[in-house]
Amino acid sequence: MTETEENIIEVKNLVKKFGNFTANDNLCFEVKKSEIFGFLGANGAGKTTAIKILSGLLFPTSGKVMVAGYDVYKHRNIIKKNIGYMSQGFSLYEDLTVKENIEFYAGIYGLRSKEIKFRFAELVEKLGIQDMQKEFVKSLPLGWKQKIAFSVAIFHKPKLVFLDEPTSGVDPITRRQFWDLIYEAVENDITVFITTHYLDEAEYCDRISIMVDGRIDALGTPAELKQEFNAKNMDEVFVKLVRNNNLQNE
């Protein structure tokens, strides 16, 4: 039980198969409360599949998966109350304004109008979007869409938020701003589970796992991994891991 209290995610021998294809091959890892957990891997390594299982969008084939203290087989709806999720694709309604999107999703989580109003005023203040709140999402630049999607994902104050490549396609400055939001969320006791292709972003994480071909081939803090692979930066760690794997396959 003490373990569960410390770990917000516990995954043991998670396997997910699509027909003959094994997307997640015996994954084992834990995510601690209030840490930033980086989930890295090449395209098609199985990251999104794992995220979907953790957030209750997919059923695992086998293995034990506990999220926020609940079993994903049995208590998916309780888990859903406790997590936020920002997908690769766009989760915002393009034909609704920023304000309407937030009101809608917050309403679905069961927040009361008063509470929504209060939190929204805070958010507007924090992001400085006084002028933007009544604009349609489709007219916003990509970077803003992503910042707002993130705000939607944590608006109901979940214990844990899953971010699936939240910063892909945006400029370095916006990415920097996005990470400020992530740090702020962590300060508010929200655990962050993030996948990314930017390896410099991996350095911002407390711990990282690297997936190759459906397996987790490396797991540790950025410093530990760099030491283990005798690499100067995460880039090198990643390349070495993936190249090793390719050599083995040949």
């Binding site: 957030s55 209750g56 969008l57 709806n77 309780i78 859903k80 109350k81 997590i83 936020g84 999720y85 997908s87 694709g89 766009f90 989760s91 915002l92 309604y93 393009e94 999703y105 679905i108 989580y109 069961g110 939607v152």
Partner: peptide, 14 residues
């Protein structure tokens, strides 16, 4: 098609 249903599906909505 838009993908917004995924966001709905991660909420606890019945």
């Amino acid at each position: 098609e838009m993908g917004t249903i995924e966001q709905i599906n991660v909420t606890p909505i019945e």
